[in-house]
Write a protein that binds this DNA or RNA. Structure first.
Length: 514
RNA sequence: GAUUCCGUAGCUCAGCUGGUAGAGCAUAUCACUUUUAAUGAUAGGGUCCUGGGUUCGAGCCCCAGCGGGAUCACCA
């Protein structure tokens, strides 16, 4: 292994620490009694609080001035400045701890523990005056140094030498998280979002469940799956592309409301909004319809916006998005009329195909009527829907698991929620007529024969479950990653996944084949 | 998968028309007991992504590959 100059220095420092008789990787507990943020925000000279505290974390900067030094300690909550003097941390004759370890062998990124009292410096900055210094762990690789300075005139924090290369940030997320505090904030918000969602559902008495990720029939959605194989059973298995059919089986089994938050896997292209594995939330509630579901989604999303961002108005790129309900409800045909000026409700397949040509939308022979309408919607309407909008009542061909519309021929009771031009939720009044369901699956098979590779597979056991009797219900799916992007003003799915999929580097230590 | 841009020190980046590889921070040595992008002085540090080619000479031009970003296609 080729070591850089700085790595060699750090390894030498490690040995020199050992030579001082100090264990650079000590075993014993260091009892932390406070965190950086609470001291910085809570310290008050008059109150005289935080006068005996122990903090631990990484040294992120030192400013050595002879027999005294300042440094910055970063823990899970943030950073705080500390002040060290030689004679206080080395009360005896032996000054090695300060002169050698602190001044020479301590590197940025090392973990230390400090014990002392809070005070304010001449410039008013809350600082820990260190009485006792403990070395906790050595860092052998140099972290990228990100320096910041507050501009006195504008009050803005200017960043110098930021660690910004996306490839390195995603491949080495631990470094990204260490040096870029705003990255950590995104993931705290993501966790808050999921926690809010979970407590909202739990408060209604709906049950959180887990369903198979390894499936022998990849139903419930239309997408290419990842294939795998079970050795003992000697059968092909697929990583789930959806969990809808399993959740419905559970409602058939007698749970009135079930939901699952988990990973789905789709063997498709990757881009700013797609990762091969992504997190979805799906929920099914018995005896409800899609109108009820729209009300529920508004309440949920509004609550999430408040919990995650502090209010219902959220800034995303140039837009201010208002997540306060109720949201506009617009039938798909009406939306197309509004944004193209053309009423397509009476058009047949040939008419739609001609209209697509007129709009310069690429079509092919495998596309049925529903697909053509969806193409027009995708090309002309979707990106216009900035404020939260429900598009309702979709063509039946596209939606084999939704119930036929109660009044409109050829449509199903489905809605999708669009925000900032992107779909973030999809819901139906679920189809619970097993005879209708079988016919829908069969027409999907016909579409597949026609060349539609998105057509859905038939799941015989699911049909059997339905034949035992499925209560009326409404179901909903929400893309957690995309919702997180909206709530944190991020434009790439990679920014809201800790470890986005990356192409493996060549000549890295591969696992040896057995 | 297609198009396009990018890859130079630990990090951020400069590098002219093809002519000895640069800066700031970081690192090393020294000074400094309230600094805060600490400061002052000195020094070291490079597979210019990889492999070919053109050329007297390539970080720069050409070809192929690897990795990443953006856009498009597919998908959520």
């Amino acid at each position: 292994m080729q070591l850089s100059e700085q790595e060699i220095v750090r390894r030498e420092n490690l040995q020199k620490i050992k030579n001082l008789g100090i264990n650079p990787f000590p075993e014993e507990e260091f009892q932390v009694s406070a965190h950086a943020e609470e001291v910085v925000e809570g310290f008050n000279e008059e109150d005289g609080n935080f006068q005996n505290v122990k903090l631990a974390g990484r040294v992120m900067m030192t400013r050595v001035m002879g027999k005294a030094s300042f440094g910055e300690l970063q823990d899970a909550s943030g950073r705080i400045q500390f002040y060290v003097t030689r004679d206080e941390i080395c009360p005896d004759e032996n000054k090695d701890l300060y002169n050698q370890l602190f001044k020479k062998y301590l590197d940025i990124g090392d973990y230390i523990g400090i014990e002392g009292f809070a005070f304010k410096t001449q410039t008013g900055q809350t600082t820990i005056h260190v009485k006792k210094f403990t070395f906790l762990s050595k860092s052998l690789r140099p972290l990228p140094i990100v320096k910041t300075r507050k501009n006195e005139e504008t009050g803005e924090v200017e960043v110098y030498d930021a660690f910004t290369d996306p490839e390195q940030r995603f491949r080495q997320r631990y470094v990204d998280l260490t040096v870029n505090p705003s990255v950590k904030d995104i993931f705290l918000k993501r966790a808050k979002l999921i926690a809010t969602m979970r407590s909202f559902f739990d408060s209604h008495g709906w049950l959180e469940v887990e369903t198979p990720i390894l499936q022998s029939v990849h139903g419930g959605a239309a997408a290419r799956p990842f294939d795998t194989h079970h050795n003992t059973l000697d059968i092909p298995l697929y990583l789930r592309i959806a969990n809808e059919l399993y959740l419905k089986r559970l409602v058939i089994g007698g749970f009135d409301g079930v939901y699952e938050i988990g990973k789905m896997f789709r063997n498709e292209g990757m881009d700013r909004t797609h990762n091969p594995e992504f997190t979805s939330m799906e929920i099914y509630v018995a005896y409800k319809d899609y109108n009820w579901m729209m009300g529920m989604v508004e309440a949920l999303i509004e609550k999430i916006a408040i919990e995650v961002t502090g209010g219902t108005i959220v800034r995303y790129e140039e837009n201010e998005i208002n997540f306060a309900g109720p949201y506009r409800r617009l039938a798909m045909i009406e939306a197309i009329k509004e944004y193209t000026g053309t009423d397509i409700s009476q058009m047949d397949e040939a008419g739609l195909r001609a209209f697509c040509k007129e709009l310069h939308i690429g079509v092919d022979d495998s596309m049925g009527k529903g697909k053509l309408i969806d193409e027009i919607f995708g090309a002309k309407v979707e990106e216009q829907l900035i404020q939260p909008t429900y598009i309702i009542d979709y063509p039946i061909e596209m939606t084999p698991l939704a119930k036929k519309h109660r009044t409109e021929e050829g449509l199903v009771e489905r809605f999708e929620l669009f925000v900032n031009g992107k779909e973030i939720a999809n819901a139906y009044t679920e189809l619970n007529d097993p005879i209708d369901q079988r016919e829908r699956f069969e027409s999907q098979l016909q579409l597949a024969e026609r060349g539609d590779d998105e057509a859905m597979a038939l799941d015989e056991d699911f049909l059997r479950a339905m034949e035992y009797g499925m209560p009326p219900m409404s179901g909903l799916g929400i893309g957690i990653d995309r919702l997180t992007m909206l709530m944190t003003n991020q434009h790439s799915i990679q920014e809201v996944l800790f470890f986005p999929q990356m192409r493996p580097l060549k000549n890295q230590n591969h696992v040896e084949e057995n």
